[in-house]
Each structure stands twice: as C-alpha cells, then as structure tokens.
Design a protein around this nucleic acid. Structure first.
Lengths: 134, 134
DNA sequence: ATTGACGTTTACGTTAACGTAAACTAATTC
DNA sequence: GAATTAGTTTACGTTAACGTAAACGTCAAT
C-alpha cells in the first residue's frame, strides 16, 4: 500500500469519480497535497473520504458532513474551544440516536407487514410446503 | 379529532407546506379524497405523511419512499405477489440494518473524539472544577 | 358586491451534488 | 515527434424536491 494515491485510484477504490473528489475539495471537504498540478491523496484523505461516504449514506448534506469531519480536526484547541466541540458532538450524537430510533421504528413496521404477509401466505397454501424463508 | 383534514391543517401539523403535500400527491405518494376541487385527507393519509417524513429523515429519496409505503398496501395479493413482497421487505430491512451499522460506527467515532477531548480538557485544567458534562 | 381566507392549477425559479464536455498541460511510449 | 494516458481548470447541463408567483374559483363575512 503506497500511502499516496492518484485521484483516479482513490475514486475507483471508493466507487466515486474524479469529478466528485474535486468537487468535495472545492467544498472544503478534502485538501490533498499537490505535486505540481496533480493531487496526491494521503491515508488521512482516504479516511475522510470514508467518513464522507458514510455521512452521505446517512442522509447528511455535504455541508453537514463538512462540519462533522471538522470535529475530528478540532480536537486540539483551547479549553473554550474544546467545550464547544463537546457540545457539537453531543448534538450530532442526539441526531444519530434519533435517526436510529427512526430506523428501529421502520424495522418494526416492516416486520409487521412481513408477519401479516407470512400469515396470508400460510393461509393461502396450507397444504403446499414449498420453498419458504426463515 | 375530526378524521378529515384540509391541506393546510395537515401541512401545519407536520411542519410542511401545502405545496409539498400537492407535490407528493403528484408523485403518487398520496391520494386524498376530493370534495369538488378541495383535497380531504384521512387518517390513513396522515400515517402516510408520517412514513414519508420518516423516510426523508433516513435519507431515502421520494421514489424509494414511494416503493416503501407501497409495501404497506401490497399485503393483499396472490401467493406469488406475497413472496415478492417478502423479498422486497427483506431488502429494505437489510438496507436499514446497514444504515444502523453506519450510525453505530459514527457514534463510536464521535465518542472517541469526545473522549480525547475530555482528556485534553482535564489535562488543561486539572485544578479548576468547573461545569462539566456527564 | 367586495374583501379575505382558503383552496386550486400551471409554470417558472432554486439549490445541492454532481455529470459532461471543451480546451489545455505534462509525462510516457511507440 | 506523434500519440496515448492521466491529470487539470472552466463552464454549462442535469436531477430531485420543492419554493414562489400568477391567475383563478368559492364561500362567509363585512
């Protein structure tokens, strides 16, 4: 693992495109080194890409993700800064917990539908012992 | 609770706008009754609105949400339809589980940052016993 | 009868997050 | 040295999910 990556390497590795990585950079989410014109992405850039993708999967906007990944860098300030950081982290944590509650509610709903679905199925074909899921 | 609602009542109740409800209807997510021109929303429409909002909070697109809320209505088909429905439900369930795993990973990351943050804080002010969070 | 309050349709505007294309550079490779 | 390959900037296009505005209907109250 060479610890430095071109834009096409990094984009392919995570299933994005060079355009996307440049856009994220223009939005302040990445800041790769330069060798002349070319961008050189480090391991640190890679983990940020992972964080960004995870944030997107969770439905956060790029602006929110910028704030969140910013939290990781701000862990070296003065006392007041650190307290503010802890507050922001607490807010994000509450957001995530709320989102997880939504997920659990959705899972329960879907399980309810699945249950009544299985009930109807076994009512429809009480004799036929076909392929059935667990 | 009158069991029938105007568009402004319903939109205010859930913090959206009439425009949004009409748009969702045009996208096939809602189908309220009509009294002449006016839309009349039922309890069933209300629960769908709740489902839609929850789907949005989880980062699903309207098209995906349309598919998901469609699952709730399709629970009355033939055997083959029901099996397909169960498959779709399983897919959505896996999606939600993956999303919850992302959330848990994010929570763990944030907790790590918070921890090192608290460590720095107590290192910075070892004497001062100020206000501190749990 | 007109003024609101509430509703309607139709249509164009807006923002986020890129896609796509053009025109250029810089380093191999044939 | 011409072509290929990978990268660059700049700029315009696109899609989703509405916002906003225009022009209109309807019904109760002034």
């Amino acid at each position: 693992m060479p610890s430095l990556f071109s834009i096409s390497e990094l984009s392919q590795e995570y299933g994005t495109t060079p355009r996307t990585l440049r856009f994220w950079e223009s939005e302040g989410l990445l800041a790769p080194r330069r060798e002349g014109q070319r961008r050189l992405y480090s391991q640190r850039d890679r983990t940020r890409v992972k964080l960004i993708l995870r944030g997107q999967r969770l439905g956060f906007t790029l602006a929110e993700i910028a704030e969140i990944v910013g939290l990781y860098d701000a862990a070296d300030g003065e006392s007041a800064q650190l307290s503010l950081l802890l507050d922001k982290i607490a807010l994000r944590r509450d957001e995530l917990l709320a989102k997880r509650a939504d997920i659990d509610a959705s899972l329960a709903d879907l399980e309810g539908v699945a249950e009544s679905c299985r009930a109807r199925l076994s009512a429809l074909e009480p004799k036929q012992r076909k392929k059935r899921r667990a």
